[in-house]
Amino acid sequence: MSGFEDAVAIVTGASSGIGRASAERFAAEGASVVIADVDREGGEETVERIENDGGEAMFVDVDVSDESSVEAMVEETVDTYGGLDIAHNNAGISPSYAPTADVSVEDWQQVIDINLTGVWQCLKAELPAMVESGGGAIVNTASIGGLVASGSAPYTGSKHGVVGLTKTAAVEYGGQGVRVNAICPGVVETPMQQQASEDSTEAVDAVTGAQALNWMADPAEIANAAAWLCSDESSFVTGHPLAVDGGLVAQ
């Protein structure tokens, strides 16, 4: 893909799963990648994997729910690499399922703080840096839960919010050379999904079985879509929530 050579990218939640796969794909395409996560051990492992493959990466400790932490992440990126061209705002959590009326205020707030406010705070810091760099591309990780009811109320609500943020930022910043899109994955073989399977095997099996492609995606399959949305090949695509879900929402 074109558009990655000499580019600078940030990937949040890159210590494992989709974030790690995305960071590795960006690096393989020629970008210098900032691995941003609260999990230092996993993040540094991602850096090591990229460097062992001949790529360029560094780890930055970030809590996306903390505004100053996110601002520091972008500042360190720009100070180190000279600008910012690509961002994959991927960090997120999924709580154990509970019916809407049974969700605690604490669980609701934690999910919203990370999944929704966290993406907004990343956009808030990244967009001016990209405008300063002459433009760029952002992809936010939503979910099929951003398109249909899938998962708990706080998770589905947060992911619908990510889709709304994506569309708003795309409209506001398209004229300044920044494209903003979202990916909406179905069931993916990640540590988060493994935890969900432990909590409710039946629910995960039901969602997987509802996909026309009746298997769990590999994180690399989602990363491929993120890379395309950040590449020059998708130059006329912005404000779009791309379902990468094995056909689940098509049914």
Rank of each mutant, 00 (worst) to 15 (best):
C122T: 05
A206P: 09
T156S: 09
G157I: 04
G82H: 03
M130K: 00
K159F: 07
A91L: 07
I112S: 04
G92Y: 02
C184G: 05
A210K: 13
M192Y: 01
T168V: 15
N115W: 12
A125V: 09
G118N: 09
D102R: 08
D107T: 15
C122W: 00
G186T: 05
D205E: 12
V178I: 06
D113V: 13
S200L: 04
H88S: 05
S150T: 05
S133V: 05
Q110C: 07
G146S: 03
R179H: 00
A170M: 02
G209D: 04
S200K: 14
T117E: 10
V103H: 07
S152H: 04
T201G: 08
P99A: 11
T190I: 14
L127T: 10
I183N: 00
L116G: 13
Q176F: 03
R179M: 05
S197G: 11
D102N: 15
V187E: 12
A212T: 08
M192Q: 12
G136E: 01
D113T: 08
G134W: 03
G175M: 06
G83Y: 05
G186M: 15
G157S: 12
D205A: 08
A169D: 02
M192E: 08
L123W: 00
Y97A: 06
T201K: 11
G92R: 03
G92D: 06
G177H: 03
L116A: 04
T201S: 08
N89Q: 08
A87S: 08
V131E: 03
T190P: 15
S133W: 00
Q176L: 07
V139W: 01
V103T: 05
A196T: 14
K167T: 01
W120F: 15
K167F: 01
V119G: 06
G164W: 04
L213R: 13
N89P: 03
V207S: 09
A149S: 15
I144D: 07
L127R: 01
E189Q: 12
S96E: 14
G145S: 06
V103G: 09
N89H: 13
D107P: 04
V163K: 00
E198Y: 10
C122E: 06
S94W: 05
I112R: 07
V105M: 14
E172Y: 01
A87T: 02
E132P: 10
C122G: 15
V207P: 11
S152D: 06
D102H: 03
G82K: 02
L165Q: 06
N89M: 04
T141N: 02
G134T: 04
G118F: 13
V131W: 01
A196P: 06
Q121W: 03
S152L: 15
T166C: 10
S94G: 13
S104A: 09
A203H: 08
A170F: 04
H88M: 08
P95F: 07
T208E: 15
E172R: 11
T100M: 15
N90A: 11
Q121D: 09
L84H: 15
V162N: 01
K124S: 15
L165D: 04
V139G: 03
A129M: 07
T156V: 12
L84K: 08
D199A: 14
E172I: 14
P95M: 14
D205S: 03
S104F: 09
H88N: 11
L165M: 12
G151W: 02
H88Y: 11
E198D: 10
L116W: 03
S152R: 05
T168S: 04
I138D: 00
N140I: 00
G209A: 15
